[in-house]
Simulated assay, not measured.
Amino acid sequence: MRASHADRDRVVETLRIAAGDGRLSAEELDARLESALTARTLGQLAELTSDLPADTGPGLGTLPVTGAPPARDVLVIDQVGGQFTRIGGWTVPGRIEVRSKMCDVLLDFSAAVITRDVLRIDCDMRLGKLIIVGGPDAEIDTDGLTLAFAQVRLRGDRRNRHDMGRGATQPLRIEITGTLKYGKVIERRARRRRSAR
């Protein structure tokens, strides 16, 4: 998986703390910092902190080279134009910040790794669509969203989504807040796969 700027920053901070604690020499620190700033994947970053204890800092010290990245507390989407997409088995953070202009944002939760019961999406969107793809039990709350020349299209009656029998899995509750100008919030259902006969 490709590394982001935030991933590199966390590893750089971990390396600096380790050097301050005497775990890395000045030469090792310089070499690892250069590698961290040019790393392209999470696996490359994980190798740089694999011999450091987990409590060294907010890096990827406990992440196996072939493992999935840990869930981050915040995913920041800051984009002008085009489209931002999260699909497949991505790990959902506790909060997502969407700061976009003339950009469509697609968040597909149908195959995502859900680690929390509630996800908050803070929006500052203009001239774009926020498209949510979720399972049949997903709850979407847009009461905290301020609309200006914008629309919200949700499927079904949200008031009855929480009324499930015992033993049912806890649905993901998505709370969308902030501001949406000249745009849309659209909920889509995940496509069901046909079983082979």
Rank of each mutant, 00 (worst) to 15 (best):
G183W: 00
D122Y: 01
G167E: 05
L107H: 06
L154F: 07
R173C: 12
Q83D: 03
Y182N: 14
R191Y: 08
T66A: 10
D9G: 11
T179Q: 14
S100W: 01
T169H: 09
P64A: 01
L37I: 11
S35T: 02
W90C: 06
L24M: 04
A150Q: 05
G134H: 08
R126Q: 09
G89P: 13
G57T: 01
P58T: 03
I77H: 04
D30H: 12
T179K: 15
K101L: 10
V113L: 04
E97I: 09
T115V: 05
F109P: 01
I96D: 04
G81I: 01
L172D: 14
I132Y: 03
L75D: 09
I96W: 06
L172E: 05
M102C: 11
L75Q: 08
G89L: 03
D122S: 14
L172N: 10
E34V: 10
L15N: 01
E97G: 05
V80K: 15
K181I: 14
D51C: 02
A68D: 15
D78Y: 08
T62S: 11
D55Y: 06
T14M: 07
D108W: 04
R2N: 09
C103R: 00
T14F: 00
K101C: 06
V98E: 04
R10T: 03
S25C: 08
E34W: 12
A46W: 00
A46C: 07
M125E: 09
V133F: 02
I174G: 01
G156Q: 08
R159Q: 10
K184M: 15
T146Q: 09
T49V: 00
L106G: 01
L127T: 13
L63M: 13
L145N: 03
R173G: 12
S195E: 14
I114S: 00
P58W: 00
M1Q: 09
T85E: 07
Q79S: 15
L63N: 00
G128S: 07
D7N: 05
A68W: 15
D55I: 06
G57S: 03
V185R: 03
R99S: 10
V11R: 05
F149R: 12
A68Y: 04
A190T: 09
T179E: 13
E187D: 11
A148K: 11
P58I: 00
T115F: 04
G128C: 00
D163P: 06
T38L: 08
V105C: 07
R99H: 11
A6V: 14
L37Q: 15
G134Y: 00
D21P: 08
I87T: 15
L60P: 04
T41K: 11
L60I: 01
L180N: 03
G165A: 11
V12Q: 07
D143E: 10
F84H: 12
R153Q: 15
L147H: 03
A190P: 07
R72N: 08
E27Q: 10
A71Y: 02
R86F: 04
A138R: 09
Q151T: 12
T177W: 00
P93W: 05
S110H: 11
E13D: 15
G22M: 13
E13R: 06
V80Y: 15
E28M: 03
V12D: 08
T177K: 09
T115N: 14
L75W: 12
R16L: 12
D30N: 13
L107A: 01
L60V: 05
T62K: 11
G43D: 14
A138V: 12
E28G: 12
V11H: 06
A112H: 04
E27C: 02
D73R: 10
G20I: 05
F84Q: 07
